[in-house]
């Protein structure tokens, strides 16, 4: 997971970056609730510079999935 991905999630969930586990998911990451999830979507859209597709949004269920979305975008 990149530092950028970890920072985006920590900022959205309102927790310390160290609390974002590499394998975390919606149930295990502290601070990941429905309100912070909206912040996360907005932060990802800002980071990627485009609105997320709805199927991308429904795939944001874990830390690896979010990391992958950010990394894929950087590679293209």
């Amino acid at each position: 997971m990149t530092v950028r991905a970890r920072d985006i999630m920590a900022d959205a969930f309102g927790v310390d970056a160290a609390q974002i586990s590499e394998t975390g998911d919606m149930a295990s990451v502290p601070g990941w609730d429905s309100l912070s999830h909206m912040k996360l979507v907005a932060a990802l859209e800002e980071a990627l510079g485009r609105p997320l597709e709805i199927m991308e949004i429904v795939g944001l269920v874990s830390v690896p999935a979010i990391s992958q979305l950010l990394e894929q975008e950087c590679q293209t």
């Binding site: 919606m26 429904v58 944001l60 269920v61």
Partner: peptide, 15 residues
């Protein structure tokens, strides 16, 4: 309805 989408995803529903 982002809050609802989040909730369905967290419950493990499939879109």
């Amino acid at each position: 309805n982002q809050a609802s989408i989040y909730n369905y995803m967290k419950l493990g529903f499939r879109c």
